[in-house]
Design a binder for these strands. Sequence first.
DNA 1: GTCTATAAAGTGATAGAC
DNA 2: GTCTATCACTTTATAGAC
Lengths: 208, 208
Amino acid sequence: MATIKKKSLDLSTEQKIKKAALKLFTQKGFSATRTRDISDEAGINLALLNYYFRSKENLFQLVMAEILQKFFSGIIEIFNDEATSLDEKVNSFVARYTALLKEQPELPLFIFHELRLHPQKLASKIGLSKVFNSFFFKQLSAEMDRKKIAPIHPLHYVLNMIGMCVFPFIAAPLLKHIAGVDARTFETIVDERKVLVPKWMKSILNTK
Amino acid sequence: MATIKKKSLDLSTEQKIKKAALKLFTQKGFSATRTRDISDEAGINLALLNYYFRSKENLFQLVMAEILQKFFSGIIEIFNDEATSLDEKVNSFVARYTALLKEQPELPLFIFHELRLHPQKLASKIGLSKVFNSFFFKQLSAEMDRKKIAPIHPLHYVLNMIGMCVFPFIAAPLLKHIAGVDARTFETIVDERKVLVPKWMKSILNTK
DNA sequence: GTCTATAAAGTGATAGAC
DNA sequence: GTCTATCACTTTATAGAC
């Protein structure tokens, strides 16, 4: 009992602040989030936020770095795996990102929103240079060669795959609050897509 | 020469403010936009903003109403046209929204972002109740009946169609500033999709 | 490390002259 | 209608006691 693992109830002050910041930044974005909101959410004093992180901006950068790392590392990893087929990569991608997004549904809207406001500042935190000459792209080219159909720019394929996984979560507020889709139906849809998206991606490769 | 049409250079003060507000709100969102930014952009005095629109909030509501109307009226219109086939509707939708988004690429990210923050406040401004029993949905059901394949929830189909058009513009900051896709390539991709998306939508209907 | 109090700057809005 | 000046309030950040 000398050293016990940290429970969610007894986080360090620093961790409490980061957790609260993660939640509020992703929900409301950088500009709409007040440092007081964060300190309240964390259940600590406002001054402690600056004691630990110096500034709101600095706290944001730290949280953002973790989020971007978490969000994009999966793509690199899957795309560069030389042991898996194209189909397997699509399956992995869809399964992994659907799971991630069910856990943190606000992530895509948050990331793309902030990315638009500060593209330069965040660019250094994302290593995506390896994507375009990844093993995935080679496999994709080979597959299009093998078929008799007219090849498409690989970007089309990636946009479709990512978009099909991510867009439902971007459109979720619209679906739920305006189109009247209930939470139950939304979850069913998302789950069905884990099977459907890979099928559609195959049929896209066969479209002439 | 007595009455001449308004040129973009001699807009009324009220119009100048609305134009500036539209630009800045869509670029940065409500929270990150300062009323001073708007007055500067419009080339007028800050006090005039409140003289004409009473408050930032009020100006936002007005601008937002126009944006939402512009963005969603097209869907209703196309979906309820009983004179066109399913394929024609998809073609119309893709052509119309691609053109709209090439003109105002920030629209989707802005709309979905604000929609998430104030779903209730904006819900009344969007009439989407008619979508789910639209003629489009009836045609879609009929088409899936006619084919021998297992039918999918119509929401899958709509999410794919809208997502395939809209997602490239949501991902644009990522593509341009992080993945290194130049503006020229991006435009080519978007233009190619005007032809490709309808094809893919057909093949999705044939996927078993 | 944590708190209270407060400084310093930003931001929406208005009064009042022209 | 348009401007300058300014108010009232919010928000980030820090100083200093404990």
